[in-house]
Every structure is written in structure tokens, then in C-alpha cells.
Amino acid sequence: MSLKIVVLAKQVPDTRNVGPDAMTPQGTINRAALPAVFNPEDLNALEQALRLKDQFPGSTISVLTMGLPKSAEVIREALYRGADCGYVITDRSLGGADTLATSYTLAQAVKKVGDYDIILGGRQAIDGDTAQVGPQIAEKLGLTQVTYAEEILSLDEKARKVVIRRHIDGGVETVEAPLPLVVTVNGSAAPCRPRNAKRIMKFKNATAVAERAPEAAEKYAALIAKKPYLDIPQWGAADIDADPTQIGKAGSPTNVKAVKNIVFKAKESRTLTASDADVEGLIKELLDEKIIG
């Protein structure tokens, strides 16, 4: 038997490595200067999907991403690593979405893919940092969920059950859950396999409509007529039958009232050397003032 697997992948600014060029002179962060990357834990999710595909040949992996047109980069990356196809969900009306509106949109897209057995996502995206989208999608699809998954240990196709090891606070847990199921994968799960050189050759010219320069339309049309897999399908709000009141800003209960860049205020500090006198002086002072001891 083969499985229909959906992977949710988000393109995120790389908040992990904020280099000097991403800092403004005021010491705050310039988000636009951060490179856009495949959300790290979504790669862990993709690996779990690929392992299921290895185990159940004939399975298909569809990757969904919602974002700006350039988020098609995430789809190409997933194709290089072994996904079968991907969809870019992009539309002006989706802008300003909080996790609830994001999960509604992605749930609508998952329904359009249809017939899914298992939906895998990362535990958390490194920009929003909420870990909320996975469980909210599960709720919207009427499915149960296994969050913080570290490994899919086994999948019984007849009984339609999966056994998963997951991280819990202070330990680990093994659970059995029914298919279809939403799983969010933790960063402690196996890393994703690298790109495959043949697949890079095959998919490097794959694009979504929104990425193509209008003047090159003819060139792309000819290319795609020959190689249909070079067209990354792109869906707008209407394509996924989205209720306009539930997407984007309108569908978001949360509102950002204020955003402050972090600037750590320098304190008045005393600088000492490593000399015996300095270290002993400090220890004595702390003891005298009953700060330690």
C-alpha cells in the first residue's frame, strides 16, 4: 500500500545567525537583511516523510508552503531532496495572517490536495516561534495530532495506526495514534538527507507562475509544455475555496499593538583584570555586602 503524505514547509528569515550586516547602527535587527531559509524543523519533517516513502514505495509526498512568491524556493529545495510535488499558496489577501488564519488557509489547501493519510510539519517556525499552526490545522481538519515527534517508529497500514516516539517535558513518550493524523516534528529528530544531484538537474528550472518575469512567459510556456513537472502549481485564496473572512488580517483574532526592537541598555559596569588582587577584591566586596556567602 502506498501513502499520501503532505508536508508543510515555511520559508523563514534565518534568525539563528544574525550577522553584523543584519544589525542597524542602532543595534537593532534589520529583518530584510536576513537570508530566507527552509524552516529547520520542517526539514526534519520532510525526512520523516521520505522515510515513510522509502518504506512504502509508491507513496507520494506533496509539499505545501504559504508565503510570498519567492517561497517557491522551499518547494524546489524539497523536490531536490525527494518530494514528489509542491504547491505555493500565495495571495495578497493572505497577508497579515496570525496562526489561526494561517492554519485555516493551510487546512483548506490540505483539503484541496485531498485523500491524505498523514500530514507532517515542523514543530515550530523560527520567526513566529509559536508552534501553534500544526495543532490548529489538526483541529480544523477534525484530526488528532502528535506534536514534538522525534521518530515515526512504525506504521500499520491495515490497522491504520502509527507508533511515534515524542519528546515530553523531562522525558520521552511512545504513543499510538490513528491515521489520518497531523504530526509536528521536533528538531531532535533525524536531520534531513541532502539534495540529490540528479533531482537538482531535473528540478532546478521549476518555477511557480508568480516567480516568472512576464516577458519570459513564452519561454516558460514552451519549457513546461515539454516538461510539465517544471511548473510548480500556485494557488490563490479562491483556488482553495477560502472564506475571505477567515484569511489574512481579517481572519486573525490577534493584533500586534506594538513592536519594539530589543536594545540592551548598557549598565554601568566595573571592569577588572584577572589578577589575584582584582579577583580577591571582588570576592571580598561581594562577601562584605552579603551578596554571596
Binding site: T15, D127, N261, I262
Partner: peptide, 17 residues
């Protein structure tokens, strides 16, 4: 709440829900 890998702090409200 902090977001963006801790680089910003946002004040979030949900007045209508």
C-alpha cells in the same frame, strides 16, 4: 512576547475575540 528569535518584542492584543 519576544519573537523573531528574540530580536524583537511584540505586544499582542485580541480585542474582538
Amino acid at each position: 512576547r519576544p519573537a523573531f528569535g528574540g530580536n524583537i518584542v511584540a505586544t499582542i492584543v485580541n480585542p474582538e475575540h
